[in-house]
Design a binder for these strands. Structure first.
Lengths: 195, 195
DNA sequence: GCAAATCTTGCACCGAGTGCAAACATCTGC
DNA sequence: GCAGATGTTTGCACTCGGTGCAAGATTTGC
């Protein structure tokens, strides 16, 4: 299942992690927009060009591995029991998002960065678009809609709405300073739009 | 109500419209990303610097006046009869989006550009974030939620879901080559996520 | 130890966007 | 008609994120 990563691969992961950690510290201190890539590479001690070998964009430092995480959610969704409704299964699958990411304090920092920087919000929303495409087929199946080559807009709307609920829940959680319960906020959001 | 715009203001609007029209033609011919601002200003016959006096970004050429349109939707929502449910009122309010924008052919072109260019999609989603904040208070009231200084996440989720339904409907409409009925697609999307 | 694959780096370049200041046009009161 | 305030256009220099390329250092497999 999990084949051993080569030494190079491990080094690469470690380097990525260290760069991201340093960058996030700088972002927290000086703000996302105000921190330039040049400052980051200077702090880490690598060349500007190498940085862009590790991360495709400045925003990627904060966003994490979009595809891997999306794939985790998809796998979790797929492995939910068949009897569950689409909403139940989606709720359970989205819980894997809570396992990843460090301690609550860092999560709060990341949420604050999203709040502050428009370009970060924009990329975050693009990330959701990819997840939408990734999760839509399974939702489509669970909604009892016929399989189709093009994604069914109903399934896409479903996924988009669920992800929007996650977003508003996380945002409200951030605004509460980490005091509110994200799961409760999510459930309330879902309930509100289901009428 | 509508105070007469000054001559300067009229000239400004005309210039904006002409620049946007030229740009969209170029985008349709060569693609959004492949068309540079320099090409646009050369085609229009103004300086690069003046362009950025009219439009804050290249994406703004396609996105239109976000705030004005959002305000139209908000006003429409506010003027819906009190007896309507939140979903009914929102659906009716969103119909103002169909009045604006030129003929279907141009709408189709714009939808295609959104489909093609990631940066355009990103800005489009940011636009929705602003609309979300703008429309949330009225939805909050209509959902029977208590007024609050911070926006209620339930109202935000509601608006976000509604806008997501618009997006998937427009996208499916685009993929059908303009054949499908956007209103039907929207209604089906809403029905799917309400279970 | 050798050869191939991989990593890092520098360099030159592109495209979007901004701050500034000078030139130009336009509208006002007198 | 003139002077001055106000707005517009433009060029210039600059910042910042991001990319293509090629050469040199390093690691890996054998």
């Amino acid at each position: 299942m999990a084949d051993t990563p080569t030494l190079r691969e491990r080094a690469r992961r470690a380097a990525r992690a260290e760069i991201a950690a340093t960058a996030i510290r700088l972002f927290a201190e000086n703000g996302f927009e105000a921190t330039t890539v040049d400052q980051i590479v200077a702090a880490v001690g690598i060349s500007r060009r190498s940085f862009f070998h590790y991360f495709g964009s400045k925003e990627d430092l904060v966003l994490g591995d979009v595809d891997a995480l999306g794939e985790s959610v998809r796998a979790a969704l797929e492995s939910r029991p068949e009897e569950e409704s689409a909403w139940e299964a989606m709720r359970a699958a989205l819980l894997v998002l809570r396992q990843v990411g460090g301690d609550p304090a860092e999560q709060l920092t990341l949420a604050g960065l999203h709040h502050e920087a428009p370009s970060l919000r924009a990329r975050h929303l693009e990330k959701h678009l990819r997840w939408r495409a990734l999760l839509a087929p399974e939702v489509q199946r669970r909604l009892g809609l016929p399989a189709s080559p093009e994604p069914d807009p109903r399934a896409e709307a479903f996924v988009a709405a669920a992800l929007a609920c996650v977003d508003v829940a996380v945002d409200a959680w951030y605004r509460s300073g980490g005091k509110d319960d994200p799961e409760r906020l999510f459930d309330e959001a879902v309930a509100a739009l289901r009428g």
